[in-house]
Design a protein around this nucleic acid. Structure first.
Lengths: 113, 113
DNA sequence: TCAACATATCAAGATGTATTGAGATATAAA
DNA sequence: TTTATATCTCAATACATCTTGATATGTTGA
């Protein structure tokens, strides 16, 4: 992930509805959820609004879609999230390991759970 | 860091100049850099443009400022970056550890360097 | 105190982004 | 094949953000 990719992903995640969609899909697992279910979870957002945000997220590589019957299922693309984390940590840890080390240590707890 | 904080930080990082400022300040270390030097590194951005982006980043908690002589020095607030990473990893790892684990493993390399 | 330097503030215009509502497309069931 | 379901596309509007240029604030040295 380079700076341009990161910008795209940050922009995608900097909108409330989109951030909530991503978090929902991450916990929903690889199966994903149909667009309608996602919209229902977003305070019943309109279909055009959902399409706008879902396609935004898909362009950013954070989610992907597949048709199944008459539904379209969206699922999280985990590597994009982890690549974003890598990108941030590259700055943080390569730049000044001694400043960042405590934070990284704190993270291990979160991740081994 | 909750969802609202994360949104603010994502928004701050989703702009090219601001992302570059943050990356510059992260590698610049705790001392920080004067606004003028940062502006010079941003293709000679105008003072008003710099002030706009610097105050945006400061509001988001990614950088802080202190006056020193007639300069104002800006420096990275590392915990905000690591909290953002935690926030992302909480989704990723708490949600589906088995999917996220390989990515997390790859990260350790980056961080132990 | 006056001149210079460094940075911040303000208002205006340009650009980009989000929401809405109407309609189009694709799939499935009757 | 007609109808209902699920979702997408498009155009218009509203809203937010970025940049520019002019000006103000605060600091140092002459």
């Amino acid at each position: 992930m380079d700076e341009a990719d990161a910008l795209t992903v940050f922009a995608a995640l900097s909108q409330e509805t989109r951030l909530r969609i991503v978090r929902l899909l991450v916990t929903a697992g690889p199966e994903g959820l149909p667009a309608g279910a996602i919209g229902a979870a977003m305070d019943g957002a309109s279909s055009s609004r959902m399409a706008f945000h879902l396609s935004h997220l898909e362009r950013a590589g954070l989610i992907r879609s597949r048709r199944e019957g008459r539904s379209i299922l969206y699922s999280a693309v985990y590597p994009t999230l982890s690549n974003l984390i890598s990108f941030l940590m590259r700055d943080c840890c390569d730049g000044h390991p001694e400043v960042c080390a405590p934070a990284v240590a704190a993270l291990s707890c979160t991740c081994e759970a």
